[in-house]
Each structure stands twice: as structure tokens, then as C-alpha cells.
Lab assay of single mutants.
Amino acid sequence: MSIQHFRVALIPFFAAFCLPVFAHPETLVKVKDAEDQLGARVGYIELDLNSGKILESFRPEERFPMMSTFKVLLCGAVLSRVDAGQEQLGRRIHYSQNDLVEYSPVTEKHLTDGMTVRELCSAAITMSDNTAANLLLTTIGGPKELTAFLHNMGDHVTRLDRWEPELNEAIPNDERDTTMPAAMATTLRKLLTGELLTLASRQQLIDWMEADKVAGPLLRSALPAGWFIADKSGAGERGSRGIIAALGPDGKPSRIVVIYTTGSQATMDERNRQIAEIGASLIKHW
């Protein structure tokens, strides 16, 4: 067993022997301040990774656009098919120029040779490549099948209805392509620590998230040296922004954090800054 596999296998073990965790309302004060600064709703939840206990939450059962955070769930569904012998990570998928959609920095470079399922998941999570996500959605049967996968996990809230990039439209009061912070946090925890996926697939999923290259201005910008984070960000229309993450000190994750916002007129930089400040408060009061 590799060191990384050992780390993920012992996530519940280490967490069980940690000192009790206590909620700190100071972080919620910052979440509410972010709402004021952005002029928009902000949803927040913080779960203990081992027990699933909610440590703090704000608007945990209000719907927010998922945006690209759905790509972690998508690759979880792909990995479940791999575990069941219905898919192979090494299978190569070929596609054409007509398949390319807006923001496809990886797939646009491989029109000639195609990409493997493993490479597509890596591109979808680490670079948020939209064509990679659409190609992977095709392998599982489309958005409705991802929703069905989530329902089978016990998540009857999260739903995907459309493809990239239309799913980022974020129309107010439109339930399409949305989740709730509580539902997303619980589902992410199941994917990373539950028995739904094999140990190898859980490790692969967290490795992809740990290698995320496009979430630097968010929670990662607030992390002290030595902290662990595996995350996936999302951005959408109407001032929408979000991030889902597993993080913790001492090089291992111990909490799940989900943050979503929508309806702001603020710039992307300002949305990023507010999420980073929430992260800084979380870490300060850990």
C-alpha cells in the first residue's frame, strides 16, 4: 500500500482519535458579512469528516447552483462504474471539434489522439474542462443518470439537468442544476469515506481534487503551510461562485467545507476574496 493510499485508508482512524471539535460562531459572522459585502445569498456548511456531524452552517438547506462543483460527483459516478466493471479508466475516447464547448483548455489539445477516461476526469476536476465533463456525462448516460446515481446514494436534493455550459445559467428560483450545502457536503463525505467506492477509487477521487489547479484564489489562499486540501470550485452566471473541499491540518483532511453564493453584482475577484476570507476565519478558529 502506498503512503497516499495509507493516508486515505486511515482518515477515519486518525479522526477518531482527534480531540473533540467545537464550532466557532466567528466564522458564521464572516459568512454573514460576506453576504453584506456581496449583496447576495451565501450558503455555508462545515462537517466533521469522521462523524458527519454538522459543526457550523448557514442557509444549509437553500438551493444554490452547483456550477462546476458537480464534476466531482460526476467522476465519482464514473469511478463507481469502474468498480462495477462497467468502465475502464484506460479506455480512450475520441471526439471532434464539434464536441468542444466553451472553456476546454485540455480537451482542445487532444482532438487528434483523444483522451482516456482517467485523463478526462483529471481534466474535468483539476482544470474544470467543460468538454471533458460533457464527454464523461455521455459515458454514464447524461445528466439524468448522474441525478439517479445521487438518488441511489441517498441524495434526493442534488440534481443535474443540463450539460456544460448551460448548467451554469443560475436563474433565480430555478431548481435545475442545483444542490443544497448540506446535501453536497453529505454526498461528498460519502464519496470520500464511505463504502460506495473502493479504496482505490476513493484515493483516485481525492487525488484529482488535491491536484486542483484553478481554485488557488479561494480556500487555498488562506491555508497555512502543512495543511491538506482537496477541492473543486465552480463559477456561473449572475454572480455565482462555489467551492467544495476536504481539508485539515497535519497533512490530512478532517472536515468537509461547502460554500456557495449566487445573485451578486460583485466582480469575480471580490467573490473570490470573500470566500478566501471565510476560509481564513475557519482556519483561525479551527
Rank of each mutant, 00 (worst) to 15 (best):
L150Q: 02
P143F: 06
M209D: 06
S80H: 11
S68V: 03
G239F: 12
W163K: 10
A34N: 12
D83M: 08
W227A: 01
C121E: 00
P105K: 14
L223T: 08
D250R: 05
G154R: 09
G43C: 02
N50Q: 01
I256E: 12
L28K: 07
T178S: 07
F149M: 15
I54T: 09
V31S: 03
L79H: 10
A77N: 12
L100H: 15
C121Q: 10
T186D: 01
A132P: 13
E46V: 06
R91E: 09
G236D: 12
V214Q: 03
L188Y: 00
G279I: 11
T187Y: 08
T267Q: 12
M209N: 14
D33G: 01
E145L: 05
R162T: 01
H151W: 01
V42D: 00
V82K: 05
I275S: 13
Q203Y: 04
P60K: 08
S104L: 02
L79D: 07
L218Y: 07
L199V: 03
A230N: 14
K32C: 03
K190C: 13
H285M: 01
H94F: 11
T261L: 04
E166Y: 14
L135Q: 12
F70N: 00
Q203C: 06
G142A: 12
V29H: 04
S68N: 01
P25N: 12
N152V: 11
A276S: 05
E108A: 06
P25Q: 15
D177V: 09
K71F: 02
N134E: 03
D250Y: 07
A77G: 07
A200W: 05
E175Q: 02
D155F: 03
Q274F: 01
W163C: 07
R176W: 00
R118Q: 14
T262K: 09
L223P: 04
A211Y: 01
A77H: 14
T262V: 08
E277S: 13
V257T: 03
P25S: 07
I93V: 14
T186M: 09
G242N: 13
V214F: 05
S51D: 09
A34Y: 05
I244N: 11
P165T: 09
D212S: 14
V31G: 03
I259P: 07
R118V: 14
F228A: 10
P181D: 15
H94K: 13
A84Y: 09
L28G: 07
G242R: 05
E35V: 02
K232E: 14
D99W: 00
L100Q: 13
I93S: 12
P25V: 06
L247D: 04
E169D: 02
D155A: 12
D212Q: 14
F64E: 12
S201R: 10
H285P: 03
N173K: 08
N173L: 08
T147Y: 12
F64C: 13
R159H: 14
E166P: 03
H24P: 00
R176G: 01
D129P: 10
P105G: 10
K232R: 15
N134Q: 03
T261R: 05
K284P: 03
G236E: 07
A133Q: 08
A225I: 00
L73K: 11
G251M: 06
S281Q: 14
A246C: 05
W163S: 13
E169P: 01
L111V: 04
K213W: 03
F64Y: 10
V117M: 07
V42T: 00
A211N: 00
A148I: 13
A123V: 06
V106G: 06
L38N: 08
R176E: 00
Q204D: 05
S57C: 01
V117S: 00
L223C: 10
G279K: 15
D177Q: 05
R91I: 02
Q97K: 00
R241D: 12
K284M: 09
K30Q: 14
C121N: 11
K53W: 03
T112Y: 01
G43A: 08
I45D: 07
K144D: 05
V257H: 01
R63T: 11
W208Q: 04
V78D: 13
H24R: 11
G90D: 06
V82D: 01
G226P: 06
M268Q: 10
I125V: 15
N130S: 07
A225T: 03
A132L: 13
D269T: 09
V257S: 06
K109P: 11
H24E: 10
S68W: 05
M67D: 13
S264I: 05
I125T: 15
